[in-house]
Design a binder for these strands. Structure first.
Lengths: 276, 276
DNA sequence: CCGTGAATAGAATATTTATTCCATTTTTCG
DNA sequence: CGAAAAATGGAATAAATATTCTATTCACGG
């Protein structure tokens, strides 16, 4: 019987819902597990789908999906759906509307520009979350955590990111050096054993950054690069590449995703050093 | 009769939908206009609401809302709702799910950190879009557009933003000077007539920035400040304050919203100067 | 290989929700 | 002011949708 399950209260937030699925899915029989898997991968569709649609997606009859809802602690599908509908409306009251209004200001109006930049930033962040490879990220953190000194390279539009990293590392007591790019220094003296290089560069790539990366690799210094894809000139053998595809608006690139990735890196490194 | 209206095809995107409402709402009778207004302010709820709910929100009987749907060119409410449900599911395929999965990596995992930063960034951007005052923004752009030279002040965590602005203004051929903060310079020589100061500062506010703002105001130099609210020490009489509430994660502040606002400002100023 | 209990599928039903229709009210205009 | 047209509200109906029920299948232990 499922009586034991029904005693447990229904999840009250999408997060709790996810957790509950993770707990249960081990012990579920075939059809119910199919439901759990499909639902877990399509949480965002619950609010706008019918039982029949979700059931078809999961490859089960509607009645199986109903049983799933009840095992999750809800009285039925409608109750489960209400959770997601409420969460949806609550989370972004009328953000889309507001954005549309700002845009309507028209061509040159600052508000319209802002709407575009906000949208580009948000799109970049969402894309980053979907495309990031956790293993690569983990590798990058390991490489940087082991370094005695972290060199930071980023010029032109990448410079603000490098500058932010310098600030963050400084705050956490991690030794880091922000390279200025003016006056090519003697790389033999710059890169010491146990150093690492964190480079940030996007098309059009700056020559200084590429040179620094090559120099570091030539000396066996580990390199982590935030760049815009595997076609980048810094995507050389031995370098750990973290791709970030920013959404552009006009000639100007949102840095939201790059900064979010940079912040995660720096905090993860700081935490691993035990400095926070 | 509404026959003329029915000839016009239904909007095929939320944007077209908004435009259509704007066109129509002038010419609608009382109840239908109530529908139009309530719907326009709650576009995001259409996907997850019933006719009865929306009608109640608008203060009209369900039948009035049905008529509204038909005047908009749809066969009925269901067809209108489909537009928004499709747009919703299409826009963010399973971003929320992905984010939840990243978070599940657990405490120290870099992926979990990234999920938090992405979320903080997105929340900041959405809040900015909702809270920004278009008039203040317009004032800021006017003040900066009229300046011969724009001075940029931002230190510590605000420095990356100032650096980005310096880059953007440079690219657009707008004269701008990034202040370093080291070695207090003689402000009488720094600020010339027709200059303007753009300051970026957040709690804990850096003394240098506050000093620069006070100096500029004392010399009659217009000041625009990106800061975290009216309680900021740079919110002095005469300064144009652009409030940005960033969402923090831990000790680290997402800069997404600040950057988006900074970029809009710079591009708007560049455009007004005719430099782009 | 059979019996027992859980799991399942699909049909039957109940409920919710959308949609239409028409009598009544309000507005418009001669 | 009065007739015609438009708009409205609410009840009646139709459609979609959720939910339950039951016969059947499946898995497992004796």
């Amino acid at each position: 019987m499922t009586e034991i399950d029904k005693v447990t209260a229904a999840p009250e937030s999408p997060e709790a819902f996810s957790r509950r699925i993770a707990e249960l899915s081990e012990s579920l029989p075939k059809r119910l597990r199919q439901c759990a898997e499909h639902i877990a991968l399509n949480l965002d569709r619950i609010a706008v789908s019918t039982v029949a649609e979700l059931a078809e997606g999961a490859g089960v009859p509607p009645s199986a999906l109903m049983r799933f809802c009840q095992i999750m602690g809800f009285s039925g599908f409608s109750e489960m759906q209400r959770l997601f509908r409420d969460a949806y409306s609550g989370a972004r009251p009328d953000y889309a509307t507001r954005l549309a209004n700002l845009r309507d200001g028209g061509g040159g109006a600052p508000g319209a520009l802002l709407a575009e930049f906000v949208d580009a930033g948000r799109a970049s962040l969402e894309r980053l979350a979907q495309q990031v490879n956790e293993n690569t990220l983990e590798t990058a953190v390991s490489m940087l955590s082991g370094a005695r000194m972290i060199h930071l390279a980023g010029f032109r539009r990448a410079y603000p990111v490098a500058a932010y990293l310098a600030y963050a590392f400084d705050r956490m007591g991690v030794a880091a050096q922000l390279h200025s790019g003016v006056g090519h220094m003697d790389q033999a003296r710059t890169f010491l054993p146990d150093d690492a290089l964190l480079a940030i560069t996007f098309a059009p790539y700056s020559g200084e950054t590429v040179d620094l990366v090559k120099g570091a690799l030539g000396r066996g210094v580990p390199v982590v690069a935030l760049t815009d894809g595997p076609a980048s000139p810094v995507a050389l053998p031995g370098a750990c590449i973290l791709p970030v595809e920013e959404v552009d608006f006009g000639a100007f690139r949102s840095l939201s995703a790059t900064l979010a990735l940079a912040m995660s890196l720096s905090v993860a490194v700081g935490a691993r050093r035990g400095a926070v």
